[in-house]
């Protein structure tokens, strides 16, 4: 269970988040939608304890991330890229992460198999394609078999097969009662994966509900999104951090 309440983040005099609040419930896939620069990554970074909020709370099962007893066993996170140093091999990367949580080495080979990277495990991360890097990040997130998955733009850079794979995986996680929260600016990809939708625009939540509720009278989620965020005028600006 992810609970965010009254989150404000200022950086360099600019307000990036202006009182964000929503929750992601167990057994459901929650889509966190918004144009680039709307504050999706900032919200997730605060939630993961990487950035500090100016005000408000972001809790996982009722506690801030930094106070989780077993972070990797509670939350799996996928942020930008692979999250690994390019000079290390994929396996070496997973091994040190596993070590930090006291997980057995065998688990490393399990997740490599799970994401389909076994063949590239001995290669340096610097030689990976974008898609392979994303799979490595996914493997890292799954190491501790966490109850909550938090993913920032997980389908970015994946080929159609990869997108299908991640969709199936996220649906499976939710089906077993786990919480999945993923951000995206790609509406089409999201509509087929999510149960609940939270729409953010310029640091504010503009819609929050089930897929059906948010889509409402609009033909598709994409139409609803453009209606809510002002017709995509902002799509050219900003940038994911």
């Amino acid at each position: 269970m992810v609970t965010i309440d009254g989150l404000v983040k200022r950086r360099g005099g600019r307000e990036i988040l202006s009182g964000i609040g929503f929750s992601a419930r167990p057994g459901r896939v929650t889509g966190f939608l918004g144009p680039n620069g709307a504050g999706k990554s900032s919200t997730l970074r605060v939630l993961l304890g990487l950035d500090r909020a100016t005000a408000g709370t972001a809790l996982i099962d009722g506690v801030p991330y930094a106070r989780l007893r077993d972070p990797l066993g509670t939350v799996g996170a996928v942020l930008d890229g692979s999250g690994a140093h390019r000079a290390r091999t994929g396996r070496a990367h997973l091994r040190w992460v596993a070590r930090s949580a006291g997980l057995p080495r065998a688990r490393v080979d399990e997740v490599l198999e799970l994401v389909g990277l076994t063949h590239a495990a001995a290669k340096r991360v610097g030689t990976y394609s974008l898609g392979m890097g994303r799979r490595l990040a996914m493997a890292t997130a799954l190491l501790g078999d966490p109850a909550v998955l938090i993913l920032d733009e997980p389908v970015n850079g994946l080929d159609p097969e990869g997108i299908r794979w991640i969709r199936t995986l996220l649906r499976e996680r939710a089906a077993t009662g786990r919480t999945v929260l993923l951000s995206s600016h790609l509406m089409g990809e999201l509509a087929e994966t999510v149960d609940d939708v939270v729409v953010i625009d310029a640091g504010r939540i503009v819609a929050d509900g089930t897929l059906g509720e948010v889509t409402g009278a609009h033909r598709t989620l994409e139409d609803a999104f453009f209606a809510l965020t002002g017709g995509g005028s902002r799509l050219t600006g900003g940038g994911a951090r």
Binding site: P71, D80, A84, V97
Partner: peptide
């Protein structure tokens, strides 16, 4: 060290601090 933009521009520090918050 930031990964190249084509690789998604990630940094290991995010992995490190999610593993050891």
């Amino acid at each position: 060290v930031t990964e190249s933009a084509e690789s998604g521009g990630g940094r290991q520090i995010t992995t490190s601090l999610t593993a050891v918050p």
